[in-house]
Design a protein around this nucleic acid. Structure first.
Lengths: 137, 137
DNA sequence: GGCACAGATGAGAATGATTGTCGAAATCAG
DNA sequence: CTGATTTCGACAATCATTCTCATCTGTGCC
């Protein structure tokens, strides 16, 4: 019974959002909205929010919640490898890291506790060589 | 030359917050406030927010941002073995998990990049059996 | 192509969490 | 105890996000 997802209409606005999502950055809905506006679109903020959410539901974009509480969106490269960052607490510089073992580990733990729909976040921070040299600790 | 952190005063309110934080649950500032009020305290909401934040800064409590954007707090057991949680996105129930391999992994990565004073956070979330049964997904 | 209608849009109001303000009350040093 | 500061509590303000509602527009149908 019941339709899975009513498939949203392809409107001008929805197309614009998809086009704007070409950079690989995580940005807030407001930031994407600003970008669209600065490129001449007349799209409304609420529409950007609605669009990003429905795209996230469809798995077209990834959404993460920042520490500030804002939700950041980024186009989801299908088949892209999941990775994390090692960020410097002094200067903010981030290095990408892979944690391949962890992906499997997360699912194993989840199964042990019968939890479903697992998601994980790994935050690795430290002091980079430059900041350490500058005494920033 | 300047004190590092002005060490907050131990007021009745601050003590009440610490006392309320006896359960190991992750709860929102508002939820802790409600609990304090229901136990007879006259503490204000802003005070609870300020108290929890300063406790988080001191490392006395852990703070995580839920998907809704709310910040959840839980007392951090001092001297407790470092561990992480598998938290339910439906009801907030958390299960402690060990990720022994990860501790070593974090240090290995840090060394590769010459980063020092490493800290890490692992957030594992899913839907617990009860919530899954209740259709909360 | 033209028509009807459900779904989408945009402007602005509403919501909800969190933070700022400020006079009053409480803490800590002396 | 007394005074200098910090913290409190009530409430206003802020910020991201969601809702409302009148209007517009894909889409299926003729």
């Amino acid at each position: 019974m019941s339709a899975a997802t009513p498939a949203p209409r392809m409107t001008r606005q929805r197309r614009e959002i998809l086009e704007a999502l070409d950079t690989r950055d995580f940005r807030s809905a407001q930031a994407w909205h600003e970008r669209l506006r600065s490129e001449g679109s007349t799209i409304g903020l609420a529409t950007v929010y609605r669009g990003l959410q429905s795209l996230a539901d469809q798995g077209e974009v990834d959404a993460v919640v920042a520490e500030s509480g804002e939700t950041l969106y980024r186009r989801c490269e299908a088949g892209e490898e999941h990775h994390h960052h090692l960020r410097c607490r002094g200067c903010g510089k981030a290095v990408e890291i892979d944690v391949p073992e962890f992906e499997a580990f997360a699912h194993r733990i989840a199964e042990q506790h019968s939890y479903g729909d697992i998601q994980h976040t790994i935050e690795l921070t430290g002091i980079c060589p430059e900041c350490a040299a500058a005494g920033k600790d």
